[in-house]
Amino acid sequence: MFVKPARLQIAALCFRPGDKEPEILLVSTRDTGRLILPKGWPEKDKPAHQTAIIEAYEEAGVVGKAEPRPMGSFRSYKGLSKGVKIRTKVLVFKIRFEKQLEDFPEIGQRQCVWLPLSEAIEAVNEPALKRFLRRKRSEIM
């Protein structure tokens, strides 16, 4: 049986120091309000880690430095119009937080929350993202 390969998306795992553990940024989806990492389709003619920087800025106003190598990936689904969902592979890049701007392209379209890592793991409801964050916990700490 032929299975169409997953389409690639690029995600930004933005982190900053917290009181007891690092905090990571989650943003809400525009349709259902689920909490996810900022992510999007690859940008033409740009390295993947640059796409992660662009997504963090566009969705949350975050400015930071991305590691050029991905920290890993997980499988997900992207909701399209009329309830269509397509399978995606999400490549995740760590971004060290520098600042968060008050004005950015998707302001007002998403909620942006910084949560301690352990709370962020519980706040996401996508099982594959939850597993990814648990598995990569030591790399984020």
Rank of each mutant, 00 (worst) to 15 (best):
M1Y: 07
R7A: 12
R7W: 09
Q9F: 13
I10F: 08
L13F: 08
F15M: 12
I24F: 02
V27P: 02
S28W: 02
S28T: 15
T29Y: 00
D31Q: 13
T32Y: 13
G33H: 09
G33Y: 07
L35C: 02
G40C: 06
G40L: 06
P42G: 05
P42N: 06
P42H: 06
D45R: 12
P47N: 04
Q50T: 10
T51F: 03
T51W: 02
T51S: 15
A52T: 03
I53G: 02
I53E: 10
I53T: 13
I53C: 14
E55K: 13
Y57G: 00
E58F: 14
A60W: 05
V63Y: 01
G64L: 07
K65E: 15
K65W: 12
A66R: 01
A66C: 09
E67P: 00
P68V: 08
R69M: 12
P70V: 03
P70I: 02
P70W: 02
M71C: 08
M71K: 01
S73D: 06
R75S: 07
S76R: 00
Y77T: 10
K82T: 11
V84T: 12
V84Q: 13
K85C: 11
K85A: 12
T88P: 04
T88G: 04
L91N: 07
L91T: 13
V92H: 01
F93Q: 02
R96Q: 15
F97T: 03
E98F: 10
K99P: 05
Q100D: 11
Q100S: 11
L101G: 09
L101T: 13
L101C: 15
D103L: 14
I107G: 08
I107H: 11
G108D: 09
G108W: 11
Q111P: 00
W114M: 12
S118V: 04
S118M: 05
E119V: 04
A120R: 00
I121F: 03
A123H: 03
V124D: 00
N125Q: 11
E126W: 07
E126C: 02
E126Y: 10
E126A: 08
P127C: 09
P127N: 06
A128N: 09
L129W: 01
L133D: 01
R135V: 02
R135T: 08
S138T: 09
S138A: 14
E139V: 00
M141V: 11
M141E: 14
